[in-house]
Amino acid sequence: MSADDVVSPRDTILARIRANRPAGEHPRPDVPRFPVLHAGRPLEPDDYVGVFETNLKAMGGKPAPEDADDLAALVRRLFPKAGVVASRVPELAGDIDVAACRPQDLAGVDVAVVRAAFAIAETGSILLSEAELGVNALAYLAQHLLVLLDPADIVASTQDAYHRPEFKERRYAAFHTGPSATADIEGVLIHGAQGVRSLTVAMRPRA
């Protein structure tokens, strides 16, 4: 740790590694981009929304009903008992200014409404980063999460996802695949282990 040490732990560890280098050439393998299969053929853009929603449901998430146009009405309908609603999207005026909050202040949020950076059809995942959340803890301290997703922001595979720029640009980025879950007691699946109790995704093109 200390730069004044004669040999720093860093240099000791690196020297050990160099002395113990495994024999043989170990070139980096070529990594092909594998297509995601759907009904026996590679997934096409027309399939993305359907496959995304199927996989989201299998992971405990819920697609929002399509018919509700007004976002405020949708929130009321999905969460009739919700008290504090925090919104990070221009389509909805929330009850609090998230960006002005400390993480701890968000513990009283019932429903957080955010927009996904993008989504993966293969797994039903959505990505949230500090750009979407304002305060990262919002996505974990709120009781419920409602995520808006532009269908044009869905990529086919996990591999495609990791070619997106977010992982090099954002300080924090997390895939959410369904809500917080545990099955640590006898394998009984429970939603809302430590984080959100539910995750709902509404298909809404960006404004």
Binding site: A58, S125, Y172, F175, A181
Partner: peptide, 15 residues
């Protein structure tokens, strides 16, 4: 046997 963990989180820098 699940296609993804519920959360896959990438910490690149401090808030």
């Amino acid at each position: 046997g699940s296609p993804m963990t519920q959360y896959t989180s990438h910490f690149r820098g401090p808030r």
